[in-house]
Design a protein around this nucleic acid. Structure first.
Length: 271
DNA sequence: CCCAAGTCCTGGTTGC
DNA sequence: TGCAACCAGGACTTGG
């Protein structure tokens, strides 16, 4: 599941290798995953176009191209971006962009087709603008977080998953953040004390930072642009650990559906 | 059949 | 009472 740390890992690799290079052609397109542009227009617009920069906002990757074009990429649940020297690899290749110089290519694989690709002019796709500040690099403070939480009745977990508040947290990091902060995912978001808000703010930064340092979480499909796994999955204390004992207090972690998502937490030390 | 999960969409609820 | 904001849950997708 590509969340902020996984997308940031990919962004760093692409930022090292794409700027200045041209897209020679678009070899494959999946219409279902395409937005704001047709298959034909995508191919004609990208042909010969030079990549200028690779940035990120939340879970969105933004490839800025010459001519004020922006390719907005969301990897969905099982999306992968791979830089490959020669042959396209395996199944589920939805898009393939041929790069100038030696037959290398940028490949977008996605088994479940939850990923999306937008091509827009003059700025990123509209959906990017609807997001809150970046959960990791945004300049929000604990006071800002308190204002975002105030009066909300939705459970804390739903708040963390809502990209309009903070952008970048998904299901895995949400469970880890709440475990780290010692807060129940079921807790109404607006009911936190100032001290608890402070713990939550610190845990958001800390867990995302750890995820970036370990180059992402490869619990199912995630790999970086060279096909390598990350290391965060070795640190999991809550996600997927229901039925196992709590690494903090020894009680048994439970599973619940919160905000429509599988959620593991310790009923004994997360309040 | 259930589970995995990010985002969009719909329809019902809350509270100012 | 009116209405915007809020919130829960379904749809979408395809393998394990």
């Amino acid at each position: 599941m590509p969340e902020l740390p996984e997308v940031e890992t990919i962004r760093r690799q692409l930022a090292n290798r794409l700027p200045g290079r041209r897209i020679v052609s678009v070899e494959r397109s999946e219409p279902f995953m395409l937005r704001d542009v047709s298959v034909a227009k995508l191919a004609s617009s990208l042909r010969g176009r030079r990549v200028e920069s690779v940035t990120r906002r939340g879970k969105f990757l933004l490839l800025s191209l010459e001519g004020d074009l922006v390719l907005t990429v969301h990897l969905g649940m099982t999306g992968q971006l791979l830089l490959q020297a020669e042959k396209p690899s395996g199944d589920h290749v939805r898009f393939s962009f041929i790069l100038e110089g030696g037959g290398s290519r940028l490949v977008f694989r996605d088994m479940r087709k939850f990923g999306r690709l937008h091509l827009t002019h003059g700025g990123p796709a509209a959906r990017v603008e609807a997001m809150g500040p970046d959960a990791w690099l945004g300049d929000w403070t604990a006071d800002d977080l308190a204002r975002l939480l105030a009066r909300r009745r939705a459970p804390l977990k739903a708040f963390l998953l809502d990209q309009r508040r903070l952008a970048g947290v998904g299901n895995i990091y949400a469970d880890e953040i709440l475990f780290e902060a010692g807060l129940s995912p079921l807790r109404p978001a607006g009911a936190l004390s100032p001290g608890e808000v402070g713990r939550l703010a610190a845990a958001v930064r800390e867990k995302l930072d750890e995820g970036v340092r370990l180059r992402g979480c490869s619990i199912s499909d995630y790999v970086d642009v060279e096909g390598r796994a990350g290391g965060f999955q070795g640190t999991l204390k809550a996600y997927g650990r229901h039925g196992q004992s709590c690494l903090r207090c020894g009680a048994t972690l439970v599973r619940a559906i919160v905000a429509g998502r599988g959620t593991a937490f310790c009923p004994s030390c997360q309040h």
